[in-house]
Design a binder for these strands. Structure first.
Lengths: 317, 317
DNA sequence: TTTATAGTTAAGAAATTCTTACTTATAAAA
DNA sequence: TTTTATAAGTAAGAATTTCTTAACTATAAA
């Protein structure tokens, strides 16, 4: 197949796009910076090449025919893709403003406190942190880069591993008495969960490790996000499964401890994700170099922790 | 958002598309029926408007840069959509040839035997029956219409219900002795299945109706398609769950019977499906009228069967 | 009845895209 | 090594497309 279906004049399709969007040849003309007559002629050309009427003409307004509506669905998508592709490839339109979106837990627990340093180091770059939004908004926003927790597979986007994540059980040190049997103590501590994707593993892991088959999950505190979760932990409200990267400083300072010598490899890791060409923007490369440097602290903290706690053992779900 | 990102000259994008497809400006020029110089100039224009190099020039060949590859992904998709949209809306390019694709069971058990009548009635129309293929092939084939078993939801396509399907248990009449208890007889008849989507309901339904909890499915014959299944039924090899529409003539002639007074509403029905504009083609409208007429025989046969067998009872899965 | 708005049309102006004719670069053949 | 053939780049002007201007039509609103 794929014989040469010659397309109608491309400009006529473009004119049709705007006319169908606005249902007005006049407005379409304004969008295209031409006269209304030009649009009228383009639509006519298109209708003649297709031998199909695309608009019903009423006085002072046009409406799409069913064929017009059908065509519009395709044309709108097609030109959207062209715009997106062109946008991705063009030179950075705002080389001095870097817009980043990050998952809330990572922003609040890690990123924001370090961004000051980045700003100091790169005063030229005007940094903006955007709340976590849908990845599809790359198409029509000024977003430069996302930080996402996931598996690194994002349709149409390029992702680069930022760091691997390990899950540990943590609680406030005052909640554990080292001279008493750990198992019974743990059973009396409520489990705190947030809405993260690894929540469902907490209880099975504990259950397996403590040989508590058949026992249902006990008291259980649910909080909205990982910031609240950390606050709850610090105020001795219970035990939680946490990403090491989000609490390693608290562990290092002794404000939180891991009551059991176990950890899990997270099924999700942190990634930088953006349309491929964004990674060539100077400002993005600078940020990437910086954050990779900063992130090394997490990796080396984890390595150190494992070295100091040789009893730590990986468990699988 | 959605500010006016003016696109580069559309023709230059089109030239780029063909050049990237073939990795040859010369071949692209042939495709576009212009000279090679024209393509060279268009590519240059595009590269200049974007200020991005899209091809690496080597002697006698060009290769895409990474930016070029990125852009190509979008441009190819976009022009594909334009072609698809335009194709859908254009006048029927072959008003005397009707190409239909149907699910094999429906073609072989019902459609082919009736098509002769359609041909006789509409000698102008040259009918072709295509083996069941993927719906996506509407884009680049000469397919006019599909007959599909499903739920009537097909992305980007319009579907029209052809008839509702009921599932009945059938076997050859010689396999049942009316003067003996039905339950034990049925237990000794093998179940025949094909690869259809309703197969998995056969045993649960039988099990429930015959109060056979805990009993695993017994002897069990698996065949490739519903044509083989009907042949197996006719040669007394067992019991099967069948779509009424595919066997109603055999039931009417007494060549098959329903040993149990139960039926199920199928989760899937038969639909005519095609891109919306195809339903306006004269030949498609003619065929649709004809098949809807023919299909009434199935509906009325079912109504009659239910009237003559008031003991028939609907069961749910 | 008048006015204002949105679309259509025709003719010629403006812009674009294409061809021609030549050039460069290099791989393959002699 | 030299010659030939191939694919691409460039400049100038021709050809084509697209746009503007200036008229006209139809009708809703004042």
């Amino acid at each position: 197949m794929s014989s040469h279906r010659a397309l109608p004049p491309l400009k006529s399709l473009q004119a049709f796009r705007y006319a169908a969007q606005t249902l007005s040849f006049k407005k379409a003309a304004e969008s295209l910076f031409v006269t209304q007559a030009a649009v009228s002629q383009q639509i006519k050309t298109l209708e003649q090449t297709l031998s199909v009427e695309l608009f019903e003409r009423h006085t002072r307004q046009v409406v799409l025919t069913s064929e017009g509506q059908y065509l519009f669905d395709y044309v709108e998508k097609a030109f959207g893709l062209l715009e997106e592709g062109v946008k991705g490839i063009m030179e950075d339109p705002t080389p001095n403003t870097l817009v980043i979106s990050s998952v809330p837990s990572f922003s609040s627990r890690w990123l924001v406190s370090r961004l000051g340093r980045f700003q100091a180091q790169e005063p030229e770059i005007n940094l903006r942190l955007s709340p976590s939004i849908d990845l599809s908004t790359f198409a029509d926003s000024d977003l430069d880069l996302c930080i996402r927790l996931g598996r690194g597979q994002y349709a149409g986007l390029t992702s680069q591993l930022l760091f691997k994540e390990y899950l540990v059980l943590v609680c406030h040190p005052s909640m554990i008495h080292v001279d008493q049997p750990i198992k019974e103590q743990l059973l009396n501590i409520p489990i705190i969960t947030d809405t993260g994707p690894d929540v469902r593993h907490v209880w099975p892991v504990l259950q397996r490790f403590l040989d508590l088959y058949d026992m249902p999950m006990k008291s259980h505190l649910h909080v909205a996000d990982s910031t609240s979760l950390v606050e709850a932990l610090l105020s001795c409200q219970g035990l939680a499964m946490m990403r090491y990267g989000l609490v390693y400083e608290l562990i290092e300072k002794g404000q939180l401890i891991c009551p059991l010598p176990i950890y899990m490899k997270s099924q999700y890791d942190f990634y930088l994700v953006a349309p491929a060409p964004h990674f060539k923007y100077q400002k993005v490369m600078t940020f990437k170099r910086w954050i990779e440097q900063e992130v090394k602290a997490i990796d080396s903290s984890w390595a150190t922790y494992l070295k100091m706690h040789p009893e730590m053992e990986e468990v699988r779900v």
